[in-house]
């Protein structure tokens, strides 16, 4: 009588069967910085807030204590060019140190590399504006509301607790298309 396969054997067979798929699967890039497509994503997402964000200046915030953060902020602002049209409004960008963020009348915040944190989330909450970043772990930790990534495939992640704390609400059709955590 043939011996039944052990669970380990079944697992090994399953792995072997799936091996070609894994070999073909490309490595997922993990990038925290935002490129031009990511910036366009953020601007479009502002139009799906309820109410939609008005035209204005987006603060691209860097942390002066973190090496490379300012350069990343400069690159993000450069991606705005002369301005980006969102769904219902137009946005320009300005590089702002996290130390100086409290002073401006911004319509949203984009956190450059390493800048997402409790300091800017506190301001985002107070002003009821969106904080966006390329750092998904920062969003998972509640240090920013939205993470965007437009690499292999587009991914938008929203921390619902952080959004609620900032008084932000997205329209239903947009919410069903994104990942909420």
């Amino acid at each position: 009588m043939p011996k039944p396969l052990s669970p380990w054997s079944i697992q090994r067979l399953a792995r072997l069967a799936l091996l070609p798929l894994f070999l073909l699967a490309p490595m997922l890039a993990h990038a925290q910085s935002l490129d031009a497509q990511d910036v366009q994503l953020v601007c479009n997402a502002l139009g799906f807030l309820d109410p939609a964000a008005a035209s204005g200046v987006v603060a691209v915030v860097y942390d002066p204590a973190i090496s490379g953060s300012k350069a990343d902020a400069d690159a993000i602002v450069a991606a705005f060019g002369n301005g980006i049209a969102g769904e219902q409004a137009n946005y320009t960008a300005k590089v702002v140190s996290s130390d100086d963020l409290a002073g401006g009348g911004y319509v949203a915040i984009i956190a450059a590399n390493g800048a997402a944190g409790t300091k800017i989330m506190k301001i985002a909450r107070a002003r009821k504006i969106l904080c966006a970043t390329g750092d998904k772990s920062a969003v998972q930790a509640g240090k920013c509301v939205m993470a965007v990534s437009s690499g292999n495939e587009v991914e938008i992640v929203v921390n619902t607790s952080a959004a609620a704390a900032a008084g932000l609400d997205f329209v239903t059709a947009f919410r069903t298309l994104i990942t909420e955590i």
């Binding site: 939609a52 769904e87 587009v154 938008i156 329209v171 239903t172 059709a173 298309l177």
Partner: peptide, 17 residues
């Protein structure tokens, strides 16, 4: 309290490719 909406196919397709 609401936000009027139809599906904005153009913008959403541009966003999600």
């Amino acid at each position: 309290p609401a936000h009027a909406q139809t599906i904005d196919y153009s913008t959403l397709e541009q966003m999600f490719r």
